[in-house]
Design a protein around this nucleic acid. Structure first.
Length: 570
RNA sequence: CGGGGUGUAGCGCAGCCUGGUAGCGCACUGCGUUCGGGACGCAGGUGUCGGAGGUUCAAAUCCUCUCACCCCGACCA
């Protein structure tokens, strides 16, 4: 490919709108252009990257026995009403009407459609198991799209759905998909981690997420360096502290704490450690009355865990502030369990505390010397906090560490959640009708590109892993406009490299060298060959890898072979 | 949804406070010189100043409404 015939659109200046590095680089390099909030055009250069990611995903999915199809992006409301998700899915589901006033949505996922296909086509155990997948544009009307294509509303996803006669078969495919995903992310050259995950809105039983490790990741993942334990912090269990609850030593005392709202302020005001305080979070309860959740001051409440408690209303929501006033007689920042008549849920770490500090349910006041049992009734004890680094690993094999990650893949054992709702049945060997087991497996194809850049860049720009680079090699002639020998050598190399199967971008613009180098580095091409008058006189060209500190000279006749070996090497 | 911010040329920005009819850098076009790390000179084109309404002799500038985009928060309780 010649740059003169390619729609390269790099920018020297960083667009003001972008915050994270991958978004900035994607805009500067001309991979994407924003059309509306969370909606992007994939420019020719970006599309090449996307296609390469897709190719790896497709190859591995096919190799794992999945079968590709493409389902409609626009889906009728009836199917979603049948599964119950027309109501359940909420405002993330983009809905609209056709000219006949019939309701439709733009598919955020395809359980309904794929199930409709399978229930019509599959009647016998002989047709199972079946694993169908597609690579397709999805739309989710996110609350807050951000970070470019990392959390876009419109994005490309690989979604696969498997159907089984029994749980053992589901389990087999589920494991195969985990292996398949590991191969995909390995081939794409990403540092990643598979972790146990919460099943979230999709529902079902077992679930694993695949995270690309990056400090800018939106998710926190907990892992144990001494074992293979790894889980999303949303899920990772915080074990109960080893010791028993301390004895009550101090008397309950009401303290005036003017202006104190946060734990940090409270801790500073009273000159005590945050772990001696308790923070209160009030959620809507299942019975309509609010529920008070207590976590230690230095801990964070985990609403994913809280949402699983029977006392808590689903979906989990904070109680309205005016409810707090009428119920507690105080606003946020001064709430506590003493005197509260409703359900109190204490985190396991709180359950062993004594003589602690909590809100007094009076504005600008806290209690010190609070003790469970003495000052308020024994609460429900549950794991409702996020684990922190240093916590004991739930598998008992060491201490947890926390890393940040970008979720790029997610696999679920759906079991029969959708197959029951959508009546997916088949006849088994005995001629008996049974409900199919289901699994689903997603990969954020567009998100992978952003995640890869987040993980692989430097001050000059993107450093694409080989498997997803838009081109393998940049061929840069210097002074081709005035030097026929350079021109001829570059043209010959371009032809020979292409013939050797190398995906080469030939910078035939006759720009100044600095411009060409800067562009090729910005767009992240892994290898570069420079043809200049100086080297050519000595019969040499220069090779430099994108991560190399300096170039090395090669005899011109060896160039193609050398490049070939470098391209295949990493 | 709550809070904050920004909308002026393709991109990055100044001008707004104190109203007088729009500017800088990059990019772009032409010519010339340059040519191994984002060149230089000369000449040029480019704007409904996000939109609507209002105040005024006069609005990018003041007022009202509105739209778009960005950031933070939604774990303050």
């Amino acid at each position: 490919m010649r740059v003169s015939q390619f729609f390269l659109s790099t920018h020297r200046e960083t667009p003001a709108e972008a915050e994270v590095v991958s978004h900035r680089l994607m805009l500067r390099a001309g991979l994407i252009r924003s059309l509306a909030r969370g909606i992007y055009t994939w420019m020719p250069l970006g599309l090449r990257v996307l296609r390469k990611v897709e190719a790896v995903v497709r190859e591995e999915m096919n190799a794992a026995g999945a079968i590709e199809l493409v389902m409609p992006a626009v889906q009728p409301a009836e199917l979603w009403q049948e599964s119950g998700r027309w109501e359940e899915y909420g405002p993330e589901l983009l809905r609209f009407k056709d000219r006949h006033q019939r309701d439709f949505c733009f598919g955020p996922t395809h359980e309904e459609v794929v199930s409709d296909i399978v229930r019509q086509e599959v009647k016998s155990y002989r047709q199972l198991p079946l694993n169908l997948y597609q690579i397709q544009t999805k739309f989710r009307d996110e609350i807050r799209p951000r970070f470019g294509v990392m959390r876009a509303r419109e994005f490309v996803m690989k979604d696969a759905y498997s159907f089984h006669a029994d749980p053992a078969s589901l389990d087999e495919t589920y494991r195969a998909m985990i292996q398949c995903y590991s191969r995909i992310f390995t081939r794409l050259g990403l540092k990643f981690r598979a972790v146990a995950a919460d099943t979230g809105a999709i529902g079902g039983t077992g679930s694993h997420e695949f995270h690309v490790l990056a400090d800018s990741g939106e998710d926190a993942i907990a892992f144990c360096p001494d074992s293979d334990y790894a889980a999303n912090v949303e899920l990772a269990e915080a074990l109960a502290p080893a010791g028993p609850r301390g004895k009550a030593g101090a008397a309950l005392a009401r303290v005036h704490t003017p202006g104190v709202r946060t734990i940090a302020e409270l801790s500073a005001f009273l000159k005590i450690a945050p772990e001696r305080t308790v923070k209160a979070v009030v959620l809507d309860g299942a019975d309509g009355r609010p529920v008070l959740l207590m976590v230690r001051g230095d801990h964070e409440a985990n609403l994913t865990k809280a949402a699983k408690l029977e006392q808590v209303k689903k979906p989990v929501a904070f109680a309205a502030v005016d409810t707090l006033r009428s119920l507690f007689g105080a606003g946020p920042g001064s709430l506590g369990p003493v005197g509260f008549k409703g359900v109190v849920i204490a985190d396991r770490a709180v359950a062993v505390m004594s003589d602690f500090v909590a809100g007094a349910n009076q504005d600008d006041h806290h209690y010190t010397g609070v003790n469970i049992g003495r000052d308020f009734p024994e609460p429900v004890v549950a794991d409702v906090r996020n684990v922190v680094a240093g916590d004991a690993s739930p598998d008992g094999k060491g201490r947890l560490e926390i890393l940040r990650g970008i979720e790029v893949g997610h696999v679920f054992q759906l079991r029969t959640k959708y197959s029951r709702a959508l009546d997916l049945s088949f006849l088994d060997e005995a001629g008996k009708s049974r409900v199919m087991e289901m699994g689903c497996y997603g990969i954020g194809v567009t998100r992978i590109v952003a995640a890869a850049i987040e993980q692989n860049h430097d001050a000059r720009g993107i450093i694409f892993p080989r498997a997803m680079a838009p081109f393998e090699l940049a061929l840069v002639p210097i002074g081709a406009g005035k030097n026929a020998a350079v021109r001829t050598a570059a043209e010959t190399l371009h032809r020979d490299l292409s013939a050797a199967g190398i995906d080469v971008l030939f910078d035939d613009r006759d720009e100044r060298p600095g411009v060409a180098f800067a562009d090729m580095e910005l767009i992240g091409i892994p290898h570069r060959l420079v043809v200049g008058e100086r080297g050519l006189k000595a019969g040499e060209v220069e090779y430099q890898g994108r991560r190399d500190a300096r170039a090395r000279n090669l005899p011109l006749p060896d160039a193609v072979k050398y490049v070939k070996s470098m391209v295949c090497e990493n």
